[in-house]
């Protein structure tokens, strides 16, 4: 998967783009900072070495960063895209730069569509809509909902796309 430019999620146009469920915003920020700090092109093995040789953790983060158009990875070499460089240099509110990109990726896309028609909604509302499109992260409904909830909290709040109230379990479009 290759980045296609500023703020553009990559993927085939006729298939939904799904956010990897276990990668956090802080990890992507960390990856971009380290990649940018190490030079223009860096070997994946060297990158893994920077993070204690933990390839199992690194690869999904790398994949997510690539999906978000922040890095490109070719034949084991990783480099920042132009958008990735801008992201790296941003002093703060980095995830807000991903606002447009995230709004094209599930489950954020559906959450924003729901938010446009309902004042507030919970993860079950989103899950029901996504299941009609056969979009799921796990076959067990309770785990699927938990993964969607985590994705929304860990990305959409940072990106300033959604507000969330843990007491009611409800999201709202900002």
């Amino acid at each position: 998967m290759a980045g296609t430019g500023e703020g553009s999620a990559t993927g085939s146009s006729d298939r939904p783009i799904m956010m990897p469920p276990n990668v956090r915003a802080g990890q992507v920020i960390g990856l971009v900072e380290v990649t940018g700090g190490l030079g223009s092109v860096i070997d994946v093995a060297r990158l893994a070495d920077e993070f204690g040789g933990d390839l199992a953790t690194l690869l999904p983060i790398l994949d997510t960063a690539e999906m978000l158009g922040l890095v490109k990875s070719e034949k084991g070499d990783v480099s920042l895209t132009e958008f990735g460089l801008k992201f790296q240099k941003a002093a703060k509110h980095k995830v807000r730069l991903l606002k447009d990109t995230l709004s094209k990726i599930e489950p954020f896309k559906t959450a924003l569509e729901l938010g446009a028609t309902k004042k507030s909604f919970d993860v079950r509302d989103i899950s029901e809509v996504l299941l009609k499109e056969d979009i799921r992260w796990h076959h067990r409904p309770e785990i699927n909902e938990s993964l969607i909830q985590t994705l929304l909290i860990h990305w959409a709040i940072y990106a300033d796309l959604l507000a969330y109230n843990g007491k009611t379990g409800k999201f709202q479009k900002i």
Partner: peptide, 11 residues
């Protein structure tokens, strides 16, 4: 914290 998160937070 995992290495990547820790590195970012330390910075």
């Amino acid at each position: 914290l995992d290495n990547i998160t820790a590195d970012h937070l330390r910075k």
